[in-house]
């Protein structure tokens, strides 16, 4: 990649202006306007971020102050009730569980596909496959949503029965309620399918940056292809894989439409992930918004604030990991 700034590199002898003074050094009006405009829009973005936090917190504070239940532990969402009672326990649980399921399924497969594209696929196929994966990342989530609800749910019923039959003893896969597969597990599978492309394309970029010398050295020592990957590719790409997964996790946490169409919501917490029911932040907001009055909307904003903070933490952590290895920044988001 080319270096970041024009000023960093020049070894030009005739005393290049000091880098800190650079924007100021030309006193022309055009320069001033241009600097002002571009810096202004940068600052505007920061203000925007800050105001998102401020406005959400403000409305959330209104809602939480009137909440008669405990906002963190109540298993109910009834802001219109006579004492208004609502809490995020179920939503937090559903969001985290469905995202974890999605990660457990998607990350290994995505790393596999990334390795397939970077190291295994016939060379003529690799570029088109990478291209198609990037295109798939652009499929709108609502399309995944109706596909999930109308195609995937009926399909997964067989798998659900099978999991219950053979892995029911694990408690998690025990299906205690009959009903269609509109469960957190199905949501997790759908989310996994949705985040596959993004995790794949970020991991692939990292794998392609592994120094050729390392791989060739391993090959020269007689390593098989798998040993090359294990010894040089995976260690080099580890932080890239972690950050790619966290970017995917960020998407899964905030996904609305796919969950809203697939899940049949209910306010229970159950580790039986195959049972229909549960809920996530985004799904709850989309589902409850229509019937909500102004106070109900504030309550939804309060739950949105928690989601905001959650995704902020996950994405921030992912970005910090990426920032440690600057070259990977092409997250293609």
């Amino acid at each position: 990649m080319a270096s970041t700034t024009p000023i960093d590199t020049p070894p030009a002898p005739p005393a290049p202006p000091d880098r800190k003074e650079r924007p100021k050094s030309t006193g022309r009006a055009g320069d001033k306007v241009f600097v002002g405009l571009s810096r202004g829009s940068g600052i505007l973005l920061l203000v925007l971020m800050a105001s998102i936090a401020v406005f959400l917190s403000y409305r959330a504070a209104i809602a939480i102050s009137k909440d008669e239940g405990n906002f963190l532990t109540t298993f109910d969402w009834n802001p219109a009730g006579d004492p208004p009672v609502f809490g995020i326990a179920v939503l937090l649980f559903g969001t985290v569980v469905s995202s974890i399921i999605a990660m457990v399924i998607a990350v290994p497969i995505a790393v596999g596909i990334a390795l397939f594209i970077s190291h295994y696929a016939p060379r003529k196929l690799a570029a088109p496959i990478a291209y198609v994966v990037d295109l798939l990342a652009a499929v709108p989530s609502i399309v995944y949503g109706i596909w999930g609800a109308l195609v995937l749910v009926p399909y997964l019923e067989g798998l659900n029965l099978w999991l219950d039959q053979f892995f029911g003893w694990t408690y998690i896969f025990e299906k205690t309620e009959v009903g269609v597969a509109r469960s957190l597990f199905t949501v997790g599978v759908l989310l996994a399918i949705m985040i596959l492309p993004i995790v794949t394309s970020v991991s692939r970029e990292v794998f392609l940056q592994v120094p050729k010398m390392n791989e060739e050295a391993a090959l020269a020592l007689g390593a098989t292809r798998w040993e090359v990957i294990r010894l040089s590719v995976l260690p080099f790409g580890r932080s890239g894989i972690i950050s790619a997964s966290m970017l995917g996790l960020g998407r899964a946490l905030g996904e609305t439409m796919a969950v809203a169409t697939v899940l049949s919501p209910s306010f229970i917490i159950s580790l039986h992930v195959l049972n229909p029911g549960g809920g996530t932040f985004a799904q709850n907001i989309a589902a409850k918004f229509g019937e909500a009055d102004e106070f109900g909307r504030d309550a939804l904003i309060a739950s949105g604030l928690v989601l905001f903070v959650l995704t902020l933490l996950v994405n921030g952590a992912a970005r910090l990991i990426i920032a440690r290895r600057k070259e990977y920044s092409g997250a293609n988001a």
């Binding site: 959400l56 996904e255 932040f281 907001i285 949105g304 905001f308 995704t311 994405n315 921030g316 988001a333």
Partner: peptide
Amino acid sequence: VDVMTGIPSIVAGLF
């Protein structure tokens, strides 16, 4: 800006 790319669309809507 990096963090903003990860804002869920529903949160932008709520803002």
